[in-house]
Design a protein around this nucleic acid. Structure first.
Lengths: 237, 237, 237, 237
DNA sequence: GATGAATGAGGCTTCATTCAT
DNA sequence: CATGAATGAAGCCTCATTCAT
């Protein structure tokens, strides 16, 4: 039997497509880390990825699509992470607090992530939008249980989003202390309506250590960043 | 006496220079508000201002410089406004609350301002930086008097800056209700450590109506915006 | 075998790159000859070459680099030509005389060459510099054999370079008679120290006819000049 | 009698016009000296001259006219100088030799002059053209008297012009020895047909020291150059 | 008459995207 | 299929010249 089954062929091709897609997304992250969002993009990305221009366009119709792809990938990884931790927790307040902690912890552990947030800002497409998708249910539950003040959700959401954003930016160029993060989260909980002592107590509950899968975008990219910072930065200005 | 005194000539020339400078700043403001800071291009500004390329460079080396000029002008106008109102108030908490209200009210009354903030983001050069300059004294006084929680200032500042930022963005494309602003301010006061009822009461104190001088950048520009929105937006993407 | 070998592909690509490079060099030559070096502008070159702005920058960072490329190419062609003729000649005086004759003859036969020299002037990068590279050995030998006056080389070189330069300019807009060239060369030989009759005799030795290869820059460009002088000169001032 | 006579008024005005014209021409020379011909012109000239743009255009319709004005002024000064020296000399050969010596000596004494020649090249408008105007009569006389070879004048002229040009360029950035100049002139005389010993003897005749009037362009400019090289070069690049 | 602000054509350079090989 | 040469629109900046005051 000389030829593989068409099915197998298809599957192989698909796997290769995925690998290349990842490679491009990673490379874009690396470029982001090396330079500000402004300045060159495509040239750097394909150079870091080691592929041709044509190949790039095979995978992404435009640079914007690449940005979107990164955002989604990051959002997915983060959601998985957060859900894993908070799902079993009965108290909606703790769920909110731990979710925010995890978001900020990710930015602390992965400057790459913080940099991307900074570059993206508060866009509907960026990972910051995650907050608007993830929190409402928990907030509503907290409100229903009388733990949070019964205000329009957007009040709570804007405060949280804005605060988290600033807190993430604070992680650059060097991360803050854990104490700082706890205090910020406590502040948000007070804003949501919790009494100061309770806010403090819950904000001090540490989430389990981050555990992103080995093949997650952030982990892979961080690794490449540490490994060959030479190659990456060579052309990067 | 047939000829003008050199002094008079000089003064006339100076006045014209100033007029052109203002024209450019106004135009840039219009453009910045309509598009993102990053994407603004000299062509946009000179088209809106109706001047030549060369003229632009006589006054500003780059669009970035224009941006800085606008920021400073806006910051000055805003500070004058705020100081006028809060200076006589003895309670630091009220001073903080009213200051934030005025900031947000300005964004509500002048979509141009909100647009500019959106375009600028949380840059050290943008008017958002105002918060970092203006608040510390009042916050410290509030902390000293036991009204605010005694946390590192940056905790309070990040929360306020982030929240105000988001609240300003909410004013686009259409402003929110006053009630919304009051609630947001109340949330911030709670985060700062005030008990919910007090936070609410102080957040409900309305500031006197905005009163910007007729020749302020915001008033002039808003007027131009209403007048010839055609010209302005033609090229603006 | 359906697909070309990568080797073949590579070679094809390389050949195309070379072709484009040549096209640009030729076009620049046409433009340089038509206008002054100083005034040539990328637009002229790409218009004559019929390529895009971007393409130009792929190959040369500036028009100056093109100029250098042309100079080197011309210098190479000329050297090959001259060496072929003078190498077997035992008498250094004859070698000098014939070399100069060939240089000038080239300018006579190729107005393009004369134009380029005019445009270049006496730059270290221009083909006129050839004289400073090529002559010293022969002059020294002539001096050693007592045929030329024993003066500092630069005296001889400046005189020859200046004179040849002017003589080349004389070839524009229409070439001079051969007799003129012979007389100029004789003058130079007298300046070098030869007695008038001997100078005359040696200056009258005709070099063999020019023979540049078909694919030399001068031949190719001259051909293009004759073919489409319309296109070339359209924008040229 | 309150008003001056119209005649006096006119004369005063004329004198002022002349003064300004000179000021501009000097300034242009200074700028030439400070930078290469390329790069800015008008801005530098008016800055060095301390006048306004408008004033400049009152005096010279374009920059080209300024160049021409400088050339003519220099040519006039040089001619006056040379004529003063050679007029009384009976021997045409000596007249030629001394004239060339004076030309070159001027370039040695005034780097400004050499720089201008370099910038101008062999243009019909430049001072190098002087050679073509001044020499023919003397050469013809020399030929008639059997001192120079009876060749077409252009042969002699091209050789001399080219050689002098190169010799002038040699004076930059630092002047050569007098001996060098003598040898070059001797070479030219040999080329013209003089026997080597006689060429040498005549080339060694030193001209009287240069004596340009105090108010000549070169003297004034050189003085200003030495005086305030700071002001001149401040903006120069 | 002098001034210098305004002009705008003319050059330069970059980079996302296309497409023949 | 992958490639990378070619494209050209979109920015940027300069500077000779004009002209209202």
């Amino acid at each position: 039997m000389l030829s593989h089954s068409p099915d197998h062929r298809t599957r192989t091709a698909e796997r290769r497509r995925d690998a290349m897609r990842r490679r491009l997304v990673e490379s874009a992250m690396l470029v982001f880390a090396a330079k500000g969002t402004e300045t060159v993009v495509i040239d750097d990305v394909i150079m870091v990825a080691g592929v041709s221009r044509g190949t790039f366009y095979k995978y992404f119709p435009s640079t914007l699509d690449l940005m979107v792809a990164i955002s989604q990938e990051l959002a997915n990884e983060l959601m998985a992470q957060v859900e894993r931790v908070v799902a079993p927790i009965p108290d909606p307040v703790e769920r909110v607090a731990l979710g925010l902690r995890l978001f900020i912890e990710t930015a602390r552990a992965f400057p790459l992530f913080a940099g991307f947030i900074r570059a993206t800002g508060v866009q509907a497409t960026g990972p910051a939008a995650l907050i608007y998708n993830y929190l409402p249910d928990h907030l509503n539950e907290g409100i229903a249980k009388g733990r949070f003040l019964d205000l329009p959700l957007e009040i709570h959401l804007d405060l949280i989003t804005g605060t988290v954003l600033l807190c993430v930016l604070r992680q650059l160029p060097v991360p803050t202390e854990t104490a700082h993060v706890r205090q910020v989260v406590a502040s948000m909980l007070r804003a949501l309506g919790l009494p100061a002592p309770e806010a403090r107590a819950i904000a001090d509950l540490d989430p389990p250590p981050l555990h992103l899968p080995e093949d997650s975008l952030l982990v892979r990219t961080q690794r490449r960043l540490e490994a060959g910072s030479d190659d990456t930065c060579r052309r990067a200005r």
